[in-house]
């Protein structure tokens, strides 16, 4: 555990809490892509199956359970509790265009051809693209509420900090996880355009981020 990794995990946690609290307080999930949230719940579910097979640390186990619980709570709020506010007309990204290639790739490129390894690889590849329905929705409507952009900022920050963590681990313990690093870098690139808009628009006091 290093400071980048811990800060990355905290950013991830903050992002998910921001989203949950926003939906809960406003009793609305307007502007939030339910599809992205279902994909994230699927990411956590397929990655954390090792909760049943190996024990790494109390921190590891607690964080996994918290991420799982919060991602399912988010999906519940969007599709059940506040489904009247769910903006399905703008959440039209075709998820099968992500799932089919990701399933195919996870069978082709994995550390071992076993169910747990393939599912873990699937979760890594899927996480890299799971935010796309959300970014697509913002592009389609042309705007995002500032709380939604804070959520995306902390998600992107989490990814950037994980890259710093991998650089650190590579130099200190010669740790290199090829699948995680390559898809992690790809995932971070998706946030770059958003980061630029976030800094130039949201941080200058706009209530909403309006796309140019």
């Amino acid at each position: 555990m290093n400071v980048f990794r811990l800060a990355g995990d905290v950013s991830h946690l903050v992002a998910i809490i921001i989203l949950l609290v926003k939906i809960w307080r406003s009793k609305s999930c307007a502007g939030i892509s339910g599809k992205s949230q279902v994909l994230f719940a699927l990411v956590f579910t397929t990655r954390y199956l090792d909760l049943f097979t190996v024990f790494i640390s109390a921190y590891n186990t607690i964080m996994k359970v918290v991420f799982l619980a919060m991602s399912y709570a988010t999906v519940y709020l969007i599709y059940m509790r506040f489904r009247n506010m769910y903006d399905s007309e703008n959440d039209t990204f075709r998820v099968e265009f992500l799932l089919v290639p990701v399933i195919g790739l996870s069978f082709l490129e994995n550390y071992a051809f076993t169910p747990l390894e393939i599912l873990w690889t699937f979760s890594i590849f899927l996480e890299a693209v799971a935010i796309m329905p959300q970014l697509f929705m913002i592009t389609k409507t042309g705007e995002a509420e500032s709380i939604t952009t804070h959520y995306l900022f902390f998600l992107g920050l989490y990814r950037a900090l994980y890259i710093a963590n991998w650089v650190w681990r590579y130099h200190t313990e010669e740790f290199f996880d090829q699948i995680a690093v390559v898809s992690g870098v790809v995932q971070t690139i998706f946030y770059c355009d958003f980061f630029y808009l976030y800094v130039t628009r949201v941080l200058r006091g706009k209530a909403k981020m309006i796309l140019p």
Binding site: H12, I56, S57, N60, K64, Y111, A112, N165, Q178, A180
Partner: peptide, 10 residues
């Protein structure tokens, strides 16, 4: 070739 790392990251 690829080898399995301990999956200690989240």
């Amino acid at each position: 070739s690829l080898h399995i790392n301990p999956k200690d990251e989240l």
